[in-house]
Each structure stands twice: as C-alpha cells, then as structure tokens.
Design a protein around this nucleic acid. Structure first.
Lengths: 365, 365
DNA sequence: TACTACTATGCGAACGTTCTCATAGTTCCT
DNA sequence: AGGAACTATGAGAACGTTCGCATAGTAGTA
C-alpha cells in the first residue's frame, strides 16, 4: 500500500512553520489560535493529507469516545434491533461502537468485557447472561460506566433498561382468558438448574404476587405474568402446559410445541415467550397442519416482521427494541460525566398488537 | 467510579522490583524473561489488578487488532447475518470489531470510513453504496486493507466477496419458465438516475450476454439474470412487469406490488429481488387476498426465517450470508500481512430452496 | 499607571506501552 | 581458548497526540 509514513501533527507543524502545540490546537479544535495560524496549519494539513491518530489522542485524554456492546447473538432480530438503536444514538453523540457477542455463555461474556475494558471504552452496554452472580460485571461497573439491557443482575446497582415483562404478559394472557380460553399453553426458554424449579416458582409466585422478579430471566418474568393472569382470573395453571424448552433453541422449541399440540387435550391457545420460541412453535403448528385461529390461538412475545403479512396476522406483545438501545446509550453517555448520579432503572412499556390470531371460544363444560 | 489511578506496567514493574522493559516482556508475552521474573511480575500484576492499556500498545506497534465494518443497515437480516459471520471470524482470529452503518448514503459512508481510519483499524469490510465512483474507498484502500462485500466498485481492484447474482437468478427464473410461467413479474430496488435506464439496460443485456456486470448493484445484476433466463427460453420480457421500486423501502415495494397485482393481466409469478422487497410484496399479496401458489407463484431472493413455516413455504434463492461475512474477514486478515497479494474476487454460489410456492401452469392461448 | 483578563504561541513533559540498543552470563561448538 | 548463538535484563527512546506551564502582547478597567 502507501509506503511513505502517514503524516503526523509534527509533519504538519513543520510544514506550517509552527510548533506542534499550535498545530495541535488548530487541528484538535482546542485552546486558542489566530485565524492566520488556522489557515496556515489547515493548508499544511490538507497538503500532507493529514489524518489524526485517535489512539494517541485517546491515550492522553483518557477518553476514546467509544462504547462497547455485549450482545447475546447479534444476528437475532432482538439484538439486531437493539444494536441499531445503540448505533444510532452513539453515532449521533459522536461515539464509535465496538461489538461482541457472548452467545449467552459466561466465558465469552467475561472475555468480551475484558477486551472492552482493555480497549478503554468510555462505557458499555451489556445484556448479561448470568443474572445471579457476575463478579466481572461488578468489577467493570466499578471502573467504567455500565448499562444493563433486557436483564438485571442481583445486587448490582447500576443503570438498566428493559420492559415490564410481568405486566405485559399478564395483560396479554388476561385477554386470552377473557376470550374464553381456559387451557393456555406456554413455550419458553425457562432454563433452570433444579428439576422442581418450575413447580416451586409457579406456586411461589401464585402465593406472593409481591415477590421481586427484577433479576429473573425475562422468560421467568414472563411466566410470572402468565401465572398471575391465571390467578387473577381464578383459572388454574396446568403445569403440563408449560413447555420448558431449557436451551435457547428453535429446534427444541418446535419439538416441545409439537408434543404439546399432539396431545388429545391440547391447549386452545399458545403463548410463546420470545421470537425464537415463536418461530419454533410456528414450525410445529405448520407441521401439525393446524390453522390459526380456528384450531389454535396464538400470542407471541416480541414482534417479528412476518407477523403482519401471514394471514391471519399474529398477535404480539411488542417491546420497543430499537428505543431500548437508544435510551440505553443515552443513559450511558449521561452517566459518563455524572458518575455520582443514582442508578436508574428504566422500564419501558410493551405494546399489545392485535391481528386476529386469537379467537373467542365458548368454554366447554 | 474507582478514584485511584489504574495500575500501569510501571506500577507493576516497581512492585516487582524490575524494569518496565522486563515487566513489559512478561505481561506482553514478547522477548525473553526468566521463570523467576515471570512469577514475580505476574504476582505483582494480579496484586495490583493490572489490566493492559491496548491503546498504548497499539500506538507503538501500529496495530490495533481491530477491524471495521460499514454496513447498510445492521438491523436488516441481510447485514445482521453477515455481521455475525464477520464477528465470528474476527473473534476467532483475536480481532475486535467496530461497526457503523451508512444507511446506504454516501455521506455517512464517507464519515464512517474516516472514523475507522482515524481509529487506526487494521482493515475494513465495506458494503459500498456507490459502485461507480468512490474516491474515499480508493484512498482508504491505498492505506488500509479493504474487502468489499456484496458489491464491487468500478475500477477499484481490491478483494471482494459476493454471490453470482446473475447465475442464481437465471436458474431460479428458468425454473419458473419451465413450470409454464410466461408472465413473470419482478419487484426490485433498481435505483436509477435516468428514466430510460431500465429499458436500455434490458435491451442491452439481451443483446450482449457477455457484458461485465460485476460493478452493478445486486438488484441490477439480478435483473440481468431475470432477463437472460427469459432470453434463453425465448420468452419476451414485459417491461411493465418490472417494478422499479427506486427507494430501498418496504412500503414502496408493497405499493408497487399491489399495483401490479391489481392489473387484469397480472403476472402468474413474482420474483422479488431481496428480503425487503419480498416482505413488501408479501404485504401486498396478503392485502389483495391472493393465495400462494394457486393465485400467484413466488420466488424471493434471500432466505428469511418465516419462509419455512408459512404454508406453503416460500421458494427462495439463498445466499450464504454468514459465510460471506466469515470469508470476507478471513480474506481481510490474510491481506494484512500480504499486501502484495493480487486482489481476489470471491464468488460464492447461491442455493435454490424449493418449498412449494411455485405451481405449474398450463400456458393459456 | 497598574492591574486583570483574555488571546496567542512555544517548550517540554506526559499518556502507557513496545522497541532498540547495550551489557553480560551461559551454553555449545570448533 | 575463542567465538558464535542464545538467554536475560535494563536504560532510554519512540509512538502521536494533548497538557501544563511559561512568556508575551493586547485590551479593558479602576
């Protein structure tokens, strides 16, 4: 490529016949400089094709004007939309964006965060994969502005943003119950460590609607909304209608949805707890040859492109993903020069989108 | 947050009682150091919670181990998938990833590339929005390894990667013709400057199948495949069945598809030239109440999640987006220490996915 | 007039690393 | 014994900026 060394501020200064300090002031846009100097330096800079080295600047200022984003999997619509929001807000504020994906594994997340810190980012936005214990996030937060997105970490009191999953799902399920549905299935990730966790959780949440669910995984929060809607309406929850997919896998979601739909006492409606679960379930529904909404009603968490043009359209609980990314970025940037500000927990509202995938049923009795 | 200054290599050296050079050798993993020094320095480093400052390292080595990606719109499935491929390959090779989106405007692309260069990226992957004249890319390529993805720029002889759009579409359209379709519509971006460009292009391509189409926009290349399939089969092309959407907009695609489907002599099959066009067209099809494939056959360029579970499934011409990202990154990294290597133009094959959205018609007449 | 405040410029240090070079001990071969 | 060749360490320069400080001219004001 270009063999000759890139022009530095020293080269520009020499050519303009001024000190590097003056050249720096003109080109860096700080301090004082006379109009004469401005033109002389600028002319020299263009003549040499000068381009600043932001590494050097960052090294001395201690600011990189770069933020980092640790996503689960950027190719998923969920993270892609958030990323777009982050990118927009970062761009507008003059920040560059460094991204990494964790694939929801703690090892990759730890590596990603180490990298971002070593790259001296001014702040980072993380969608943490362990919400119960994350010492690396605690360390990071002590040194760098940090905003959590979609999930919160227990005992980590930092800025965060997400939607009210419990409320959003409770509203959505309440509508299904209103429309006469009594056997509602749920397909969700609901990863767990103990085998009895699901049963314990369901009865625990039923017993005490005041439980703090803020640091639960979104799918568990959504389950809480699901259960509370039942409880509020006096409809019993059939645990066997809750497909605990376990992995975050479309194939497994399809398998479990298929099993549920093959039952003689299959549910009249299904709620899917996120985009991937919805897609897996759609595969199952197609495979079983069921028609929506005649054979089965469906409500999915997260809005997906195709929901609007399949017929009938699919009802969705839509969270404002792009906005979440934007707000997260704005919070992060505000945090940078206000380290003492009390941590803010921002909760955005989800939107219920009705398109006709839910039919009214007359309860059999 | 943390008030005390971060530990530097000098701090570590002092605590270990060695020179900064030795500490650097141990912590940076270069040069010679004895086992005794290794432990002494490492102990001091952990005791101080030392974390290297990659800015300083990059400033002196001239290498950032960072690559940049300029995408059109990262939230679109197309770029998101490519991004994932890039991210994977970068990660594996120990490179960080800086992203920006151009929104397909030249101004934002210029800014993005300037930023990446100032950030001293070791190389960049760009999906250029102007394939005819891009001085900023020429400049960039002279100074930094550059790989073009999805599109090539006229007269810019650098590494690039993409699919054989002409061949892929020609195959797809040939199949439609084989199945008896004679009036095939196309919905594509096909942005143009002159009003007669479409007609000129179609007749030009018909006349000379040897024309070099490598620096055309993908949608024009796909049109070439569309036309050539017609020509090869002796089927005339009806220009009025080519919807030139102009903008890269789903709404406009829907509007134009709707208009085409409202005609009394509407086509028996539709080919949509990319994901966004396909989605706009799907909206139109649903709005017109047409059934696939009975009322209308459909083939779309680019595979989208939902195509597999709507019924019937939608036939697609799938390009290996993630692989494109990976290969692009690998090429870029190879290029970094082989600047003299001749530029490579990598062309991957697209895959025809058949799902039943095309029916066999008996030509009327 | 004298003091303050603002503007303007340059010198040299600083940011936190790695690099070059000098020095020297050890090992191995001839 | 002499000399490569390798191993090991340190001193100090270098990367390309900005920062702190010194200097000085020019207004503005008491």
């Amino acid at each position: 490529m270009n063999e000759e060394r890139k022009a530095t501020i020293t080269d520009v200064a020499r050519r303009a016949g001024v000190s590097t300090a003056t050249a720096g002031r003109v080109l860096g846009g700080y301090g004082y400089s006379s109009t004469e100097m401005k033109t002389r330096v600028q002319d020299a800079a263009t003549a040499l094709g000068y381009s600043p080295n932001l590494l050097a600047r960052s090294l001395i200022t201690g600011l990189t004007r770069t933020i980092g984003f640790v996503a689960g999997d950027i190719q998923s619509p969920f993270y892609a939309k958030i990323l777009r929001g982050i990118s927009d807000a970062a761009d507008e504020a003059g920040f560059a964006l460094l991204i990494t994906n964790s694939d929801e594994t703690i090892e990759r997340e730890v590596d990603a965060i180490r990298l971002l810190r070593e790259k001296q980012v001014d702040g980072m936005i993380v969608s943490p994969c362990d919400t119960q214990r994350s010492p690396h996030l605690r360390d990071a937060a002590a040194a760098t502005p940090l905003v959590l997105i979609d999930r919160q970490v227990r005992g980590l009191d930092v800025d965060s943003i997400g939607v009210d999953n419990v409320e959003a799902v409770q509203t959505g399920i309440a509508r299904l119950i209103e429309r006469g549905h009594r056997r509602i299935g749920m397909v969700a990730e609901l990863q767990s460590t103990r085998p009895d966790e699901l049963a314990t959780f369901v009865s625990g949440i039923c017993a005490d609607p005041a439980t703090d669910v803020s640091t639960l995984y979104p799918s568990w929060q959504r389950l809480a909304g699901f259960v509370r809607a039942h409880t509020a309406a006096g409809v019993p929850v059939d645990l066997s209608l809750i497909a605990q997919v376990g992995d975050y896998s479309m194939e497994e979601a399809e398998r479990q949805a298929r099993a549920m739909l093959a039952r003689s006492d299959r549910p009249s409606a299904l709620f899917t707890a996120d985009g991937l679960m919805t897609e897996g379930t759609m595969h199952a529904i197609t495979a079983c040859g069921l028609r929506i909404p005649d054979d089965l009603s469906l409500v999915g968490f997260d809005e997906l492109d195709w929901m609007a043009f399949v017929s009938p359209g699919i009802d969705a609980i839509a969270q404002p993903r792009r906005l979440m990314g934007q707000r997260a970025t704005q919070m992060l940037i505000e945090r940078m020069d206000q380290a003492d500000l009390a941590p803010r927990k921002l909760t955005l509202a989800a939107r219920q989108i009705l398109r006709g995938s839910v039919r009214t049923v007359t309860p059999t009795g």
